[in-house]
Design a protein around this nucleic acid. Structure first.
Length: 235
DNA sequence: GCGACAG
DNA sequence: ATCTTGTCGC
């Protein structure tokens, strides 16, 4: 497990953060299909917070895309680098997530983020931001529609419908389980929307959420617990 | 101005 | 995100 502070030059205000997004947005690559679904490595990343102790725990869990077995995992502990502001989530999560990815013993392959990529007020959500900074193929799978609207997909697993910002399609609502609320998939960096959907469906054969985010979520919570206990031991 | 708003 | 027990259902 590695420890990280707030990076030098990290945005301190919302205005600075938005300016960073407006500049980095130009580097997003949308014309690559990305790794073929079902092959290679797929890595889930997620973060847990302890606002009282100013702690962030991030986890990266690498799965074999064909079997969904865990191949490798890593965690990182950091300081909270930005408050939660809708549209600026990346500034809160990226430093620690990046450290966890750097600590992996193997290449992550496709990275699956808990949140959005293109589906973002300035079309530069967490998945796109992480992808550009680390030059990795990324997608975003979110649990909520954020500010977007969507037509309800058919009731059967695999059905999808456009996720809309006005009339612009910024992602898809994808049903991963029969009759269960869909997840919201958007492209991050260097992956097509069709492949993003195929990956997400492959990664969720049984539960609503992809195994990548389920594994990463469980691991970062464990890491946060251990870090909190270490900082405030019980006597 | 008011309300909504990924995690 | 996080605070949190039991409970309804396959």
């Amino acid at each position: 497990m590695t420890t990280v502070g707030v990076p030098a030059g990290w945005p301190a205000t919302e205005e600075e953060a938005r300016a960073v997004q407006d500049e980095l947005r130009a580097r997003v690559v949308l014309d690559e299909p990305g790794p073929p679904p079902g092959t290679g490595h797929v890595t889930g990343v997620d973060v847990a917070y302890d606002d009282d102790r100013d702690l962030v725990a991030a986890a990266a869990v690498v799965l074999d895309a064909a079997t969904l077995e865990v191949v490798a995992e890593a965690t990182a502990i950091g300081r909270i680098s930005f408050p939660y502001v809708p549209g600026l989530l990346a500034f809160r999560e990226i430093p620690t997530v990046r450290a966890a990815l750097d600590a992996l013993p193997c290449p992550p392959g496709l990275v699956v983020c808990d949140g959005y990529g293109l589906a973002h007020p300035r079309r530069f959500g967490l998945a796109s931001h992480l992808g550009v900074l680390m030059d990795l193929p990324t997608i975003g799978v979110a649990k909520n529609p954020f500010t977007f609207t969507y037509d309800d997909p058919g009731p059967v697993r695999g059905s999808s419908a456009p996720l809309l910002a006005g009339t612009e399609e910024v992602g898809r609502a994808l049903r991963t389980r029969d009759g269960v609320k869909p997840v919201f998939v958007s492209v991050g960096h260097r992956v097509s929307l069709d492949n993003a959907l195929a990956h997400t469906l492959d990664l969720a054969p049984r539960y609503r959420l992809p195994e990548t985010t389920r594994r990463a979520d469980a691991l970062c919570r464990r890491a946060l617990q251990e870090a909190s206990i270490r900082q405030a031991p019980t006597s």
